[in-house]
């Protein structure tokens, strides 16, 4: 039983990790409606920035979020402005996907060029210490990630519901043409959304950096899992992505123990496919209909 509880705890912590990556992705995917294959590389860039800043200035990696999140916001906004926006009118939506594939390849290899294939270790500054909940061991850093994910979800929800900008974003997501008629600058909204999505990952990367060794390829694993969480939670739904991530974290941890660590990916992706096919609006069903996503 202790083992089971420990696995569940591990799964939830892992879910928190996925959540903080997935929340930014669901914004971009749900609102700009672009598959951002470079999202994992955004995380990687953020982790390297956090590593450089915390080792260079000898500060706690969490503090680097103050610089990393804005930097990632700029990266995201530039991506939308320079790469995606010129392609929004393209007849073939495929080209956007390939554009982000190109960005992902370029960023990953740029990291390889600068940092080499070796791992980089961000100093832990105590976040690898443990707390005991009964018999269950949890890392403080993981708790912080989960807490940050919750705070991020609540914060974004408030932003979307209560602020003018947030409402404009939601209006654009639901009907771009109508939003434009109402005087919303949809291009600006997309740039803003992409930036916010990337900034969320920036925040996440400062929290993840002290927990995991950073390498140029770390993003590739996260990006596919993050897409799974996003679809599971219902496209564009921020709380959905969060709960989707918790579910995937649990599934991952439980299947790793009970089925075998070599098959856990197969389990996760099979669940993803079943959801896509049987309940494409996601586990936590939003009203958005997938068939209207593509033009």
């Amino acid at each position: 039983m202790d083992t089971f509880l420990q696995i569940v705890a591990n799964g939830l912590m892992l879910g928190g990790l996925f959540a903080i990556v997935a929340v930014g992705l669901t914004l971009i995917f749900g609102i700009v409606k672009v598959i951002n294959f470079a999202h994992g590389e955004f995380l990687m860039v953020g982790m390297y920035l956090s590593f450089l800043l915390s080792t260079g200035l000898d500060v706690h990696p969490y503090l680097t979020a103050a610089a990393v999140a804005p930097a990632l916001f700029v990266l995201g906004a530039l991506t939308q402005r320079l790469l995606i926006q010129p392609l929004m009118s393209a007849r073939d939506e495929h080209v956007q996907i390939f554009a982000t594939v190109g960005l992902s390849t370029a960023l990953m290899n740029l990291a390889l060029l600068i940092f080499g294939a070796d791992i980089a270790n961000t100093p832990a500054h105590g976040v690898r210490s443990q707390v005991m909940l009964g018999e269950v061991r949890i890392l403080t850093g993981q708790l912080w990630v989960l807490a940050a994910a919750v705070a991020l979800v609540i914060g974004l929800q408030l932003f979307m519901k209560k602020t003018r900008t947030g409402r404009a974003i939601r209006a654009t997501a639901q009907n771009r043409a109508a939003a434009r008629l109402m005087g919303i600058n949809d291009k600006f909204i997309y740039i803003l959304t992409f930036g916010i999505g990337a900034a969320c990952v920036g925040l996440g990367s400062s929290l993840i950096a002290p927990l995991y060794p950073t390498s140029p390829t770390i993003g590739t694993y996260f990006v596919l899992i993050a897409f799974v969480c996003v679809v599971l939670g219902g496209l564009g739904s921020i709380p959905g992505a969060f709960f989707g991530a918790l579910v995937i974290g649990l599934v991952d941890a439980l299947s790793g123990f009970y089925i075998g660590s070599d098959l856990r990916e197969a389990v996760v992706f099979t669940i993803f496919l079943l959801i896509l096919i049987l309940k494409p609006s996601g586990l936590f069903g939003t009203r958005m209909n997938l068939s209207h996503v593509s033009p």
């Binding site: 420990q6 892992l14 770390i218 694993y221 991952d252 941890a253 439980l254 123990f257 075998g260 660590s261």
Partner: peptide
């Protein structure tokens, strides 16, 4: 005897096993 993907980000289940 257990395999796992190189790029994995979590081995806690394996450790518990």
């Amino acid at each position: 005897v257990q395999g796992y993907p190189t790029s994995t980000v979590d081995m806690s289940s394996l450790v518990l096993d």
